[in-house]
Design a protein around this nucleic acid. Sequence first.
DNA 1: CGTTTAATTGAAAGCAGTCAAACTATGTGG
DNA 2: CCACATAGTTTGACTGCTTTCAATTAAACG
Lengths: 241, 241
Amino acid sequence: MLEKFALNTALAEDDCAAIVALPLSLHFYNPGKHIIKNDATSTEFQVLVSGFAIAYKVTGDGFRQIVGFRLPGDIINIQHMQFPYNDCSVQATAYCMVAAVDETLIRNLTCKRPIILNAIMASALIEASISREWIVNIGRRNARARIAHLFCELASRLDPCRLAEDQPFRLPLTQQQIGDAVGLTAVHVNRTIKGLIKDGLLEQDRHLISSPAWDQLKSVAGFNRRYLQLDQKAATLGHSQ
Amino acid sequence: MLEKFALNTALAEDDCAAIVALPLSLHFYNPGKHIIKNDATSTEFQVLVSGFAIAYKVTGDGFRQIVGFRLPGDIINIQHMQFPYNDCSVQATAYCMVAAVDETLIRNLTCKRPIILNAIMASALIEASISREWIVNIGRRNARARIAHLFCELASRLDPCRLAEDQPFRLPLTQQQIGDAVGLTAVHVNRTIKGLIKDGLLEQDRHLISSPAWDQLKSVAGFNRRYLQLDQKAATLGHSQ
DNA sequence: CGTTTAATTGAAAGCAGTCAAACTATGTGG
DNA sequence: CCACATAGTTTGACTGCTTTCAATTAAACG
């Protein structure tokens, strides 16, 4: 299970072994439950094994903005590596399994094996790169492109190897939550998705999303998966992704 | 000069000494010059010593979005720690002095002294935290609050110790660039800034920015400097900021 | 001092938000 | 298995914040 994380950050064999040897506890969260609460502190290093979660902040006016997704293999609370409190909340939107390790153990491990700290930092840098792309998405694209981009990003992140690019993927988000992710209202998300479907760029069955024309959808979105570093990692660190 | 960086990430004495001992080269950039070009690779680890720079991306439609500022003490290209190419460009908007160290030396140093890697990671995490706040700012605040928030953030980052909070600070950005940072057009930035000035929340003399009522401006912005980790760092790592 | 760049202002248009209501899905308990 | 409650989706009409386009003024620069 925790191998997903190891795989996600590309390590040498003995380092992987050291990680697998860590005593970890598993936690489970139902949809709607909070994995991390804003302002709370924690002493655990948490990795999402399966499920789907959103990281969000709330403005003083009560508006919510989702600032990132946590997909299987993602570290849920990287900022805990350095800072004790959370700057945002993380909430499960699907049934989530979370592997947790005491932070002291992680700190000891990374002191002995800086390579692992490197791997963790790589995750942090990818998360930062995704945040930057979100800034571009929300700041400079219209509703149609924003939502198309969101779907393209999720399709790539959920299927990094492009094994099943044309397969539908499950998106456990309400339209309100999609709006909170791309800076739109739920009403406008609804209209925009309808438009994408009408134009043959998107298909939807309940929470299953697919596209009859990914290339066109990417074009509408201005999507280029480079920023996800999915291909780069393998090349740089000599591991198969 | 490089001490600014060391100070910014809070290290022990001998680690600082190791950093200061690094052979570094200084580069200078005039306003408008690129410090980092998108898609280019680099073998140097760069820290901004003085000046002001913007990190930006360009959409397929040719729209520009600034994704972050580089202020004195900031690492210009943290993602280079793990990934060879750039996902955005960095351009000087004021006369910039940049200290550069060969990345191989940094990598060797961080392997010997994981604490330094920790410090670098802290910088990466703060940068990520700022990006998340930008997502909130652009996604869920109106023009007035967005611009107010931008000014509050810069005032805090330029004066982390609150030594001269009521002092004006120099903002070497055009209104077009401010718009590119907060996802608005230059025209609307102009009108909004005028409005803030008219309401006594802001004062402007050329590129010198100040506020007669920072608390009110913060209130309009919904600004809380917690996400900048300016106070946290000192408390956590036992150094004076 | 002329040239270029940036700031400013006005009018009109448009994308997205707001409000409200109806509809659909999902789940629960009797 | 149905009635009901709740949450989410869909649709319409209207409003408004922001953009666009265009022109003018001011500032910066060589």
